[in-house]
């Protein structure tokens, strides 16, 4: 435990400030109760989601690079995003910035042009589940639970982009035909890619019962 850091930059994303406000509020409360600190990313912009990447490649990278730059400005190496789409977009940007130095230089020069601080280092993005699981863990959730969710049956739905694709989320686990060097790095803290279990573990620690939902987990 304690590999990611107790104090991280918090990127809520546009939806969490509007249509899914409840998720934002509960995330903050849970983090506070678990003794973790979310540093709100001031003045962030939209990540571009699945849409703008089909229109403009460089523009989408720029959108995310701006958010990364804001996180660096606030002194963070780690960004945590509760939204699957946002964490996907940030991790996608991270992948392209890390693997292609030409893209990295182009993005940096455009950031400068746009009046944003340069990226000296590319911050890593984690999904909030990963952060909760590794910084607090089921044991602590169990201790801190005031009113257990006893009798509540939960179907844990992780969504498409929580562990996929492994290039971005770094959840690589299956044996492909790639050579050892070409095989993408796996993040130490990453969830199982085809059968994620972090949410099950945390809910069960809080007293709920997970129902059998296996094939639909990540559909």
């Amino acid at each position: 435990m304690g590999v990611i850091g107790k104090r991280v930059a918090y990127y809520p994303g546009c939806s969490l400030e509007g249509a899914t406000r409840a998720y934002d509020v509960s995330t903050r409360i849970v983090a506070r109760e678990l003794g973790l600190e979310l540093d709100y990313l001031e003045d962030y912009n939209c990540c571009g989601a699945m849409e703008s990447k089909n229109v403009t490649f460089m523009g989408t990278l720029l959108l995310n690079a701006r958010n990364m730059s804001l996180a660096r400005k606030q002194g963070h190496d780690v960004i945590v995003a509760p939204c699957n789409g946002c964490s996907f977009s940030l991790q996608r940007a991270e992948y392209f910035l890390q693997t292609d130095s030409k893209i990295f230089e182009r993005v940096n020069s455009l950031l400068k042009e746009g009046g944003v601080d340069l990226l000296d280092k590319i911050p890593e993005t984690y999904h909030i589940l990963e952060w909760f699981y590794h910084e607090a863990g089921p044991q602590k959730v169990k201790e801190k639970t005031k009113r257990p969710l006893r009798g509540l049956k939960v179907a844990n739905y992780y969504g498409c982009l929580y562990t996929r694709p492994h290039f971005y989320a770094r959840t690589y686990s299956h044996a492909g035909g790639q050579s050892e060097e070409a095989r993408p790095r796996r993040r130490e803290t990453a969830d199982d890619d085809e059968h994620p279990y972090y949410m099950n573990a945390l809910f069960e620690a809080a007293g709920a019962t997970s129902v059998e939902f296996e094939p639909m987990h990540t559909q």
């Binding site: 699945m50 498409c160 982009l161 562990t163 996929r164 694709p165 492994h166 290039f167 299956h174 492909g176 035909g177 790639q178 070409a182 993408p184 890619d193 559909q219």
Partner: peptide, 15 residues
Amino acid sequence: VSCHKCTHRCPKGVL
């Protein structure tokens, strides 16, 4: 639908 199963499972590392 951008579920990224194809990219995730590709044995040759094609995005």
